[in-house]
Design a protein around this nucleic acid. Structure first.
Lengths: 210, 210
DNA sequence: TGACAGAGTCAACACGGTGTTGAAAACGCG
DNA sequence: CGCGTTTTCAACACCGTGTTGACTCTGTCA
C-alpha cells in the first residue's frame, strides 16, 4: 500500500501508526472506548498526544481502521462459505452464522466499540451499514431462492426477514460479548440463533424433511 | 408522589424539575442526546447551568427519569394485555409486540437515547436490563406453557428463545426509529416481527391449524 | 559536505463541556 | 419582622479534545 524500506534509526511512521492500532485493540480488551483517551493511545504507542494527530485525525479514526480490518475479514470469509443450501439448509445457515460469531468473538473489543460508536459517528455508521447491507443482501438472495424452489414458504418479504434476522444476530452477539443481562450463554448462542433463522425462514422445524 | 401546594409567586421547584424533563424530551426530538448540553437543558427550563444541578446530578439522571416514565407505561400496558394465547396464538403475540412498537414509537427520542446510553451509564443499563428481563420472563412463561400443551415444539430452550426474540425486537425497533439502513419499513415492522416470533416459537406458519 | 525538504515531534495554547463552591436572594412560617 | 429553608448563580477548577508553530531529525542531491 505504501512503499517501505527506510533505513531510519528511529521507529518509522508506519510502525508508529501500527503501534497506535495495537495499543487501541489491547486497551479495548480491558475497558470501554469512551474510557480510553487519546493520551492513553499516544502513551501506549510511545508518543505525545499532539503527535497522535499526525497519524490519526481523531480517536474515532482509529476505531474505524480497526473495524475496517474486522469487516474485511468477514467479507473474505463470507466469500469462502460453501453454498450448499439445497442439500443441507440447516447446516449451511448454521455455518454462516457460526462464522460471524467466531469473527466477532475474536475481536470482541473492536466489535462492541464499533457497534456503540455508530450511534454518534457518521463514518463508523456508514461502514457498518454498508456491511450489514451486504450481509442482508446475501441472506435475502438465499431466502429468495429457497422460496422460489418451494423449500421456504412465502407470506413474508425475503428482504424484511433477512434484515430482521441479521439485526437479531448483531444484537444477540453484542449481548453475549458484553455479558449483558438478559443474554444467553455463549455456548448456546449459535444453536439458538440458527434455530430461529431456520424456523422463521422455512416455517418448519426440519426443512428438507417436512 | 411529593406534596404540592406552595403558594410561591415564582415558578416552584417541582415545576422547574418538570420543565427540565419537558425540555429534554423536546430537544431529544430534534437531536442526539450527546449533542444536548446541560446548558441547553438549563436554558430551556429558564435557569442557569449550576441551578440545573440542584434538580439533577447529571444529564444522565434526566434521561433516567424519562426512561423510567416510558418503562412504567410499558409495564402498565403489559399488565393489561389479554392472555388469549391458547385461543388465538398469532393474534395474541402480535398484540403484545404491537404494544411495544407503539410505546417506543411515541417516545422515539427517549427510547433511542436510552438504548444508546446504556452502553456507558450503569443506572440506565440496570433499569433497561430489569425491564428486558421482565419482558423476557413474560415471554418465557408463555412459550413454556405453549410447549407444555403441545402447541409449540421443544428443541430449544424457552428462555434462550424468549431473550433472543426480545433482543431482536429491541434492535429492529431501534433501526426503524433511527431510520437506519438497512432497516425495514415502519409500516411492515409489526408484521415482520410477529411472523418471526410465531414461526420460531411454533415451528410452523399457522399455529392452531397444522 | 552542507543546506534543503519533508517527516516526525511536542510544549503551549484555545476551547468547550462538566461539576463544585460559597455567598446571596427569595420565600414562608411563626 | 426575622430566621431557617429553598432556590439561585457568578466564579472557579478540571479534564479531554484539537491546533499552532517552532524544533529536530534523516535522507538526498547538487
Amino acid at each position: 500500500m505504501v512503499q517501505r524500506g527506510r533505513r531510519t534509526a528511529k521507529v518509522s511512521g508506519d510502525e508508529r501508526q501500527d503501534a497506535i492500532l495495537v495499543t487501541a485493540e489491547a486497551l479495548l480488551g480491558g475497558r470501554a472506548f469512551d474510557d480510553i483517551s487519546i493520551e492513553d493511545l499516544a502513551r501506549g504507542a510511545g508518543i505525545s498526544r499532539p503527535t497522535f494527530y499526525f497519524y490519526f485525525s481523531s480517536k474515532d479514526e482509529v476505531l474505524l481502521a480497526l473495524l475496517d480490518r474486522v469487516i474485511t475479514e468477514v467479507e473474505h470469509r463470507v466469500g469462502e462459505l460453501p453454498r450448499d443450501f439445497e442439500s443441507d439448509p440447516a447446516g449451511a445457515w448454521t455455518r454462516s452464522i457460526a462464522m460471524f460469531v467466531e469473527v466477532f468473538t475474536s475481536h470482541r473489543g473492536v466489535a462492541t466499540a464499533a457497534i456503540a460508536a455508530k450511534a454518534r459517528n457518521d463514518e463508523v455508521r456508514a461502514l457498518w451499514s454498508k456491511s450489514m447491507q451486504s450481509w442482508a443482501d446475501f441472506s435475502t438472495e438465499v431466502i429468495q431462492s429457497e422460496q422460489a424452489r418451494g423449500a421456504a414458504p412465502g407470506g413474508i418479504d425475503a428482504h424484511d426477514l433477512a434484515v430482521s434476522l441479521n439485526l437479531m444476530n448483531e444484537r444477540v452477539i453484542t449481548a453475549v460479548l458484553n455479558q449483558e443481562s438478559p443474554a444467553i450463554a455463549e455456548s448456546r448462542a449459535l444453536a439458538v440463533l440458527s434455530t430461529i433463522w431456520i424456523r422463521s425462514i422455512y416455517g418448519s422445524v426440519n426443512p428438507g424433511r417436512p
